[in-house]
Each structure stands twice: as C-alpha cells, then as structure tokens.
Design a protein around this nucleic acid. Structure first.
Lengths: 123, 123, 123, 123
DNA sequence: GTGGTCTAGACCACT
DNA sequence: GTGGTCTAGACCACG
C-alpha cells in the first residue's frame, strides 16, 4: 500500500489516507472488490494508531467507496469514477475558492494571487 | 465594527476576528492609534464570549499589530503595512499550496487544477 | 509639583505619584503641613485622570503620610522620616530579593546576577 | 511535575508555570522530546483550571520552547539553551532595573541600593 | 468602564 | 485520552 503520511502537514492523518485511497480507486490502482489491507496491517505499516486507520476506513465506507464485511475485511465498492472525479474537483474548487476569497479579503490583487498560484504549481 | 462571524466555518471565531482586523489595518480602515472597541463591547456586538474577543486581541498584540493599555483600551500600533502584506501573502500561499497538494493527491492534473483556479478567479 | 510620569513604564501611574511624593517628604522638599496640589490641579498638570490622582492621594493618606481636610485640601502629616526610610528600604529589598530569587530559579549564577546589577546601576 | 504555584504572589499562575518549565528545560530536567504532562493532568495535579494550564502551554509554544501535537500531547522542542539564557537574563535585567529605579525614586542613594543588593546576594 | 486572570464545564477534532 | 475552542460569569487592578 503506497500511502505516504506527512506528519508535519496540517492535514489530519486520517484525511491523508482517505484522499490517497480515493485517488487510487479513481486511477484504477485499486479496482472493484479489491481487498484493502487490514486496519492492523496498515497501522503497522504506517506506524500510526489503528484507530486512525479505522477512522479513515469508516469515512471511505460512509462515502460509499468501500464495503466492510465483518470478519473478512474491507473491499473496494463498485465505483463511479466519473462521479468521484466530479466530487473531488468540487472539493478542490471549494478549497481554492476559500483561498482566493481570503486573499481578496486581505486586499491582495487577483494578479498577485495568480502569481502566487503559478509559483506553487510550477515550484 | 464591521466584523462578520461565520459560525458554520471551520475557522475559529477568534481567528476570524484577527483576520478581519488585520485586513482593516492594512486597508486603512483602521489607522495608527485608532481605538479598537472594548473587549466587552465587541463581545456584546458579536454575541460571543468576552474571552474569545480577548484571545483575538491578545493574538493581535503578540504579533505587534496593536498595543493594549491596561484600564484604557486597545489601540492600533504603528502599522508596518509591508510586513503585514508579506505575512498575509505567506498565509495565502500556504492555503493555495494545501489545495494544490490535495488536488494532486486526488490525481487531478496540474492543467485541470489551473483551469479550476482560473474559473474561480475570473468567475 | 515636580512629578514625572512615565507612561511607557510598567509601573502604574498612581504608584509613580505615590513614590515620588513619599520621596519629596523624606527629602524635606515637602514639609509637615505643606499643602499638596488639589486633585484637579495635579491631574491637569500631569494630563492624567483626576481619579488616578485621587487614588494616589488615598494611598498616601491610608499609609499616614498625608491628611485630607474636607473642603480644604490635602496636607503633609507629621512624618517620621527615619521610619519612612526604613519602610522604603524594606520595599526595595523585597523587590531586589524577588529579582535575585528569580535569577537563581533560572539557574543564573550569583556572579552573573551581580554583573547585571552593576551594569544597571552604572548604566 | 515539580511545579509550585503561589497563589498569594502577584504573578499570574500561568506565568509561574511558564517560568518554571522554562527553567526545567534550561537546567536539563526536561529534555528535547520529553512529554509534558497533559493539560488535564497538570490542571488536576495543581488543582487549577485546565484553561490556565492551556494558556501556559500556548505561551511556551508561541515562544518556541515546546511543540504541541493535536491529540497526542505537548513535547519539549529542540532547545536553544543559549537563546533561553539570553531571554531569561533580559527578564532579570528588567526586574532589577525596575527595582533600582524605584529605589532612586525613593531618594535612596546608589550606594545604599548596592549595599542592600549585596546583603541579599550574600544572605 | 477598561483590560487581566481564573473558573468549571461543555463540545469537537484527532489519535 | 489529548489538545482546540467556546461559554458565562466572577474577581481584581487600573484610570
């Protein structure tokens, strides 16, 4: 499981896991009915608390990306990739919009905001 | 005091106050030596706890934007607008970077991220 | 009335007044039965609130250094200069002791504390 | 945690905590990455409000002496002992200066102030 | 009336 | 269990 946890980021660990598993599903790295690693296994691999992995899996299941079968494990659900992509784009859009609005609230010009953005994207 | 509190946001109230007062200072709406509303007055106006306002004011003072005189009130300090602008740009940069990183984590191409961004900026 | 108020100091204004009037009494600049300036007059002269001067005068009277005659004014009481000096020295001693103890709590050597002290005294 | 709160002092409780933890760090009693007691645990131990402990911890973090990890705890940061020592000396210097100024305001001669100081240091 | 500190307890997010 | 935020109200020091 190629998941990378960045502890120094201000993003909760469980969210980083959710994000990356969603991406894997969308990119086909994880296919329908694939078996996710067990909570215990993943928590060992990432050296984090099992509760944190559990929370990520719960979140995925709540959003319909996985199904958990008691006593067997967690599996990738039938995914509508396009829907997922749309959802993720909307989330990204919301984040970008919040940032832009904050910049404007700070009185930073759109030109300056764009420059910053390009710097980051190309950086 | 035109401060707007959004309780549904995930940004702490005291931080919203800090942000908006900083913006007012930078935009000249609040000038050097201007008197900020008293802790109690603002807490009443915004219908929040006095401690929350106090926390915001403490933060502003710690960052050097205001000076507080015991028994008299809180005043706008000699404003270093350039410093403030730099700080705000850094904050915006951090927000944008988080958004971009999330987009990439989602497997969205830089081109698509840029398109979304431009849509927002021009929208 | 040669009283000097330092607003930037962290010492309350009323205390600065009390201290300086005590010193004047001890040094004979103010003698028994001398008339202190009226609360209003002094507050105008020092450009501070009358309440603050009142508080200083109250404090002096409570400690027995002055007597206030209703409708007439405030007068210097019969002062035991030596007692006053002893009192003031004890207060100074307490302040110095607190500072020294804090320094030691911080793990600063007595030699270093002494150096700092001499620097201040000679500075 | 050997912290002693003196309620009768005029020093705020949270500041007493900050002072003593800083001293522990400087003296090596607390080392890098050591875990500070949880806010709740310390508040129980000292029989004070959790918010008061929190305020002390916030202050320590703002000054860079500790790092707080959400949901995990508060840890001693990579200690810059020299910086800390300088800071503490500055604090001591300020205290001593206030005392000396008060003594002079009282009309006590520098010689007498020095005698008092030496008495305390050698006492 | 103004800020400064403290309380006791609540609810939420993260591990 | 840990920190993060917020409340409602108290008491004190200062002006």
């Amino acid at each position: 499981m190629n998941i990378i946890i960045n502890g120094s980021l201000m993003v909760p660990i469980y969210e980083q896991i959710v994000d990356q598993i969603k991406a894997m599903i969308r990119e086909g790295e994880l296919k329908e009915n694939d078996n996710l690693p067990s909570v215990r296994a993943l928590s060992k691999e990432l050296k984090i608390s099992a509760l944190t992995v559990k929370k990520a899996y719960d979140s995925l299941e709540a959003e319909g990306f996985t199904v958990t079968v008691h006593g067997k494990g967690t599996y990738v659900a039938a995914a509508n990739k396009e829907l997922l992509l749309e959802e993720q784009k909307k989330e990204l859009e919301a984040d970008l919009e919040l940032a832009v609005l904050k910049g404007r609230r700070y009185g930073i010009s759109d030109e300056d905001i764009r420059s910053l953005f390009e710097l980051i994207l190309e950086g």
